[in-house]
Design a protein around this nucleic acid. Structure first.
Lengths: 209, 209
DNA sequence: AAATTATTTAACCATTTAGTTAATTTCAAA
DNA sequence: TTTGAAATTAACTAAATGGTTAAATAATTT
């Protein structure tokens, strides 16, 4: 039974996209197993059957949302690390742009990390060859700077991991950091914004000769 | 109906502790909602009813395991950061001891972060007053070093967060890091062990004047 | 050994959950 | 205005899940 979707705006203007947006907020907050189809339906203000009518199954919705979240995060890393900027400028760009992205999608890091920990095989279907070697160019760049004597001798992979740590972790651990440092939402946001300036300086000081 | 537990070793020598240990491995891998009581029972080689006989409910088991995991991680941070060592020595101790702890319990960071993101109120019942001000002493120490001109002017909280980022994140993101850097388990472990030496140098270079 | 208490099991229960169905309503085109 | 497809709903199903029970077995005490 094939259904043509001639995209007629429904009575309550619930587009496929807006339902998916709602589903995303639920999945990101609760994780796959913590999410109930009924909760998505309620949040979207539609009947549960409509969810299946549009998206077939929970897995299908999840898959779409995971893909979207993943693609919101990783291509950007690739793009920045593969740019032709100088190392110092690149590090600055990375933190600035990446923290901005995460401030707008604070749940994504925790979501992706948890779901990948739970189902690592998923990585295979998401990373294509062109993504699998993300760090190659950046690694070469670091190596060149080491050879030129501009930065200290250090495994380039360790630098990459450190940069990712510093950018991503505070989002994944947001509730903990807010609690321990006693930060309200606005203060937390300020704290993260400060990091856009602090982190490049921190990393560059740590590695320059 | 009160039951005295006169601790008789059961036929198949399934002690309460060993069952809890099994439950822990399942909860840590799957998270609260991903865990099935039947799976714990199977893994422990006991009847599902026995789980309830010993521990009453899924929540009770989870609570015990979360508490244990939490206490495996946080008091150690407190202990090291509240020691009387000099700043440099303290940073070295922290990374070395903490990474060792996490190498033995690699699932805990992701587990705790996910469960806290899902239920932040839990923090209130776990952090007591004496834990809530963990960073106070360390913050003072950093301030003093800044005033003495030994380290650069920087919000001490940012340093604390950076140190935590660098130590904890690679465990929470283990599958991702292994995939992107193409590391087998043994190589990943070596990579983490290297960090015990690299990270203190990295942080100290970043902040010293 | 008899009686009592603790442990273990299989079968069961109530609820929740993802997913289905069949009937109804809405909408647009003819 | 009729018609046919798309959108929507309520009621349903089958499976899974946390939890219970009552009976059986093992261990301990008397």
């Amino acid at each position: 039974m094939i259904m043509k979707k001639t995209k007629v705006l429904s009575l309550d203007h619930h587009s496929e996209a807006s339902i998916l947006e709602t589903a995303k907020s639920v999945f990101l907050k609760r994780g796959y197993f913590g999410t109930r189809m009924q909760e998505i339906a309620d949040a979207a203000g539609i009947n549960k059957a409509m969810l299946h009518y549009y998206f077939r199954s929970k897995d299908k919705i999840f898959e779409a949302i995971f893909r979207e979240s993943f693609n919101c995060i990783f291509p950007k890393i690739l793009e920045i690390l593969n740019s032709d900027e100088m190392l110092k400028q690149k590090i600055q760009s990375f933190f600035s742009r990446y923290i901005d992205t995460l401030l707008e999608n604070p749940h994504i890091p925790g979501f992706i990390m948890h779901e990948i920990a739970h189902n690592p095989e998923r990585l295979n279907s998401f990373f294509q060859q062109h993504l699998a070697d993300i760090p190659k160019k950046f690694i070469k760049q670091i190596k060149d700077e080491i050879d030129a004597g501009n930065i200290i001798k250090i495994d380039p992979r360790q630098i990459i991991v450190n940069i990712l740590c510093l950018a991503v972790f505070p989002f994944a651990a947001k509730p903990l950091i807010q609690y321990v440092l006693n930060l309200k939402d606005a203060e937390y946001k300020n704290f993260m914004n400060d990091r856009k300036k602090i982190l490049p300086e921190f990393v560059i000081r740590a590695i320059k000769t």
